[in-house]
Design a protein around this nucleic acid. Structure first.
Lengths: 235, 235
DNA sequence: TTATTATCGATCCTATAGGAACTATGCCAC
DNA sequence: GTGGCATAGTTCCTATAGGATCGATAATAA
């Protein structure tokens, strides 16, 4: 209605479309909506107290993430979780992207490495909180969300350092699916420990005098991550 | 209005959104709209005799192609043509994708090669028509459009043979920019001859007993294409 | 003459209403 | 009992109208 009611919100100026997009994306990544369920346009609009138009725009944008599917004249549906074949293709695509990004990033002046180090520290802290919560029962959704966000931020920093906007966009396009996949694959505290340690190895290689070693470290990380997800997906 | 007027169109069922998307994309790729010009929502809606809502949805979808940019509360603009840095990044991204796709495709059973051969023949025919038109003055827009479409179809077949939907989506996401870039770089009949010959080399390698040679052929093609675009962009 | 401010026009953004299509339920015929 | 058909409900899709914002022009003051 009156978006300028709160002057403290400053220069949001994003329009309703992006806010609706963030809200629905948050719901989808939380996994509370069952796969295959229909995402009604105006039901969602009523729930969020907006008109269907911005919801419709957000849905178009959500198609790009691969989390929802559109059937013309039938509406939107929540995508089913990835099967084994899709999982394999997703990892192949990620390996291609990450390998290229690491190679490009290793050829730069590496001024961005302090930033990567702090992101790594944040990832470790989030991992500690998750492992700590694991000892006391089911892990709250918000903790795992923060953990995955920190993980993605670490990888994304490497892509940003590669200085290629198109490859960065490709990674962002896969980020939502990767997040969803990992949420389904996170099985125990060992996954967290292994992931943070592999990240540390990548960081060490970048900081060393042989930054090209980061390529091998990243490929090791990817292969281990693939195995971790496969063992979790096929019980 | 009444989309069911023609019963022979069968089960299109695409809704207005995709039709509007195709129309605007066609206009953008034709290059008749000057860069930086504003794409008014309801002006476009009036021109196409539809309501602003499907136009708005098509615009969201067009953002993904990189041909239009959105400024919240200010509308959409036609993107400026790619500068040298963006051009370099685009080629780096394409080389990554094409190299990976060729490697994957070479490892398959290669039943798709007859299809690639016919696409190559169509590409040659379209190239002949363009070169023929070049001798008689300015080339009609439709001919160059068909030529680029045949070129993209050739590459896309290789991506389809790689059997990775995510990498295929990445290629599709770059296709519009590639098309636009090539339209600005097409300078003379030599470009057409070289491109078709390089495609022929890729096809020969795929058909040979050493399909992995197609990787080298593709990389040669990419590097030559990069040089052709650079010489055309910097007169 | 220059800088600031107020006003006007155009456009985007949002909300509401009506028509069209799809899904599901119930009925009838075989 | 089963298959086909008609009808009702729900939802998507499109169109129109009103409020808010941005950019530009013109007028005024220094």
């Amino acid at each position: 209605m009156n978006a300028s009611e709160d002057p403290a919100r400053g220069i949001e100026r994003r329009g309703l479309r992006d806010q609706v997009y963030d809200l629905i994306l948050e719901r989808l990544l939380a996994g509370t909506i069952e796969p295959g369920a229909r995402l009604s346009i105006d039901t969602t609009a009523r729930e969020l107290a907006v008109s269907p138009t911005p919801v419709r725009e957000a849905m178009v944008q959500l198609e790009r993430t691969g989390l929802v599917a559109r059937e013309p004249l039938k509406g939107y549906r929540v995508m089913e979780p990835l099967d084994a074949e899709q999982l394999s293709e997703l990892f192949s695509a990620r390996i291609m992207l990450e390998t290229t990004a690491v190679t490009m990033a290793a050829a730069t002046d590496r001024q961005w490495i302090p930033g990567l180090r702090s992101l790594h520290a944040a990832h470790i802290e989030a991992g500690d909180r998750v492992r700590d919560a694991m000892t006391r029962g089911p892990v709250p959704v918000q903790l795992t969300q923060e953990y995955f966000a920190a993980d993605i931020a670490f990888h994304r920093q490497i892509f940003a350092a590669a200085h290629n906007r198109y490859i960065l966009d490709m990674y962002d396009g896969l980020a939502a699916l990767t997040h969803q996949m990992r949420a389904a694959a996170l099985s125990g505290p060992r996954d967290v420990s292994e992931a943070t340690e592999e990240h540390a190895a990548i960081l060490r290689a970048f900081s060393s005098e042989e930054p090209l070693d980061a390529i091998d470290a990243m490929q090791t990380h990817m292969q281990n991550a693939r195995e971790r997800s496969l063992t979790a997906a096929a019980p």
